[in-house]
Design a protein around this nucleic acid. Structure first.
Lengths: 172, 172
DNA sequence: CCAATGTCAGGTTGACTGATATGC
DNA sequence: CGCATATCAGTCTACCTGACATTG
């Protein structure tokens, strides 16, 4: 198997544009299909680039995001449930992600002082160091968005904010 | 467990904007981080909505895309490798996806007439019917993008085309 | 012999469902 | 009691690596 998917030689045409052309011949909403397909591919690109940058630190995107969230928290710790809310991931995924981060000793579970149902996840000193170093690597890779102009980056964030809001992510 | 991730009550603030605020306090490239994070979340939204629409047909997004690709092909069939190129997925993923579609009798493997190494994947009559019906459902769900204006949909596709091109997806 | 095609075995990730123990 | 919090077991998708048989 010579090839990994990310490093294939470019196609001679834009596959999304081609799909839209064919779609419009039979169905409606070709524009929307093209946008949705583009989002899927864009995410693939970002994940590939960020994952590559994170590999030396033995972190995935999901685990990195969790680490940064804790780094940003005032106490350096958050309840499991809160993490799930903020990261928009399933409760069992939080358990899974924290399990792995804990095995790496980047976080530790500590009991909540007053509510004995909830578990606080606390970032360790080592976790902070890794998060800082990993951030440098991820920034160096520009999150895979290095080919976009500043204007495009802003436009993208702006449109996607409306999408996220429309999906009920936040009130704001 | 009361809640699935998609249907949580909205947060009181935009988590991406909040992350950017904190990010800018320590690091640079907050705009790019916000865009990358937004892409990740946007993909989650699209997948959730499309998956829901496809559930009655026992199709995943990946299998649906493969089916539509075959529907669009002139002969109703494509070599495995070509499918991987166009769908931008790993060769073993193509094997996996075709295995499942074949078990559902939506496609069948047929020998290539001249090159005995390659295997053609051919959409069946049943596959065509399912693809048509599934497309109706997916269009009814607007690919999860129903809350975006036509202008935003176009802007999004446009920016993401430049991203995909920058990532070396196509020459065009 | 070398390159291309597809498959298989085996490992990782993350997301999900349903059930459960514990505590408010 | 009902509800919330986190976990566990098990399943599923998709990805990746490395090896392999077959064919051009």
């Amino acid at each position: 198997m010579a090839d990994k998917r990310p490093e294939k030689r470019p196609l001679a045409f834009d596959p999304v544009a081609e799909a839209k052309r064919q779609w419009d011949l039979r169905w409606s909403a070709g524009e929307v299909m093209a946008a949705a397909t583009s989002i899927m591919r864009a995410q693939q690109i970002v994940v590939a680039r960020v994952s590559e940058a994170l590999r030396p630190f033995d972190l995935t995107f999901a685990r990195y995001e969790a680490l940064v969230l804790l780094l940003f928290s005032r106490q350096g710790s958050l309840p499991m449930g809160k993490m799930g809310e903020r990261l928009m991931v399933h409760p069992t995924s939080v358990t899974n992600i924290v399990d792995r981060l804990e095995a790496q000793e980047f976080v530790k579970r500590v009991p909540h002082p007053t509510d004995r149902r909830t578990i606080l996840v606390e970032i360790t000193a080592e976790g902070r160091d890794v998060a800082e170093a990993a951030t440098e690597a991820v920034e160096a890779a520009s999150f895979g968005l290095d080919t976009l102009s500043d204007g495009d980056v802003k436009r993208l964030t702006d449109v996607l904010r409306r999408l996220r809001k429309g999906a009920g992510d936040f009130d704001d």
